[in-house]
Simulated assay, not measured.
Amino acid sequence: MVNQTGVPRARTQEGGHESTLITDKGSTSIDDGVVAKIAGLAAREVAGVHAMGGGSKALSTMRGMVGGDGRSPSQGVSVEVGERQSAVDLDLVVEYGTKIPDLAAAVRKNVINAVERMTGLEVTEVNIRVDDVHLPEQDKGAVQNDADQESRVR
């Protein structure tokens, strides 16, 4: 099999929840989580994507209190990996004022390029669900709440 650049692509074979790339020199397994992480990082690179996953600010705040900021590179990403192909589903929170159709096109392009370049798997589809719109005032409120917390502690 030869891709668009004329470089031979490895044959692939299903391996449970992994995709196994088989060549004459050996095989390479790519776990679903790897594809999800690549897709999540590629989606976050696009201007206008505020966050990935559910849009609940309260839930994100609680995650931050429990430990860490609650953001995983694969948060808001689910993938299906087959023999030669993968499909990606993304949940996004977009910045207010961003043209969602343009953002979706840019995210699709970036995700497809990153996953195909890094894994050799063909991406058949990237489905995008916009969960929420991030408003600029939300950041100001969070800063104010942090200031209130600090003044109560001292």
Rank of each mutant, 00 (worst) to 15 (best):
M1S: 15
M1A: 12
Q4W: 08
T5G: 08
T5A: 13
V7H: 12
P8T: 14
P8M: 13
A10Y: 09
T12P: 11
G16K: 06
S19C: 09
T20F: 14
G26N: 07
G26E: 05
G26A: 09
T28Q: 11
S29F: 08
I30E: 00
D31S: 09
V35C: 02
A36L: 02
A36F: 03
K37V: 04
K37F: 03
A39G: 02
A43E: 05
E45S: 15
G48E: 01
S56P: 03
L59K: 15
G67R: 03
G67Q: 08
G67L: 06
G68K: 11
G68N: 06
S72Q: 09
P73R: 03
S78K: 14
S78V: 10
V79Q: 07
E80K: 14
E80Q: 11
G82H: 09
G82Y: 03
Q85T: 14
Q85N: 11
S86L: 01
A87D: 08
V88P: 02
D89S: 14
D91L: 12
L92E: 05
L92D: 03
Y96T: 03
T98E: 05
D102Q: 06
R108T: 14
K109D: 12
I112S: 04
A114R: 01
V115T: 02
R117W: 09
V123T: 13
V123N: 00
V123A: 00
T124E: 12
T124N: 08
N127V: 13
I128P: 05
I128D: 10
I128M: 05
V130M: 05
H134D: 12
Q138I: 04
Q138V: 08
G141A: 07
A142Q: 10
V143K: 13
V143H: 04
D146A: 14
D148V: 07
Q149D: 13
Q149C: 02
V153E: 15
R154F: 12
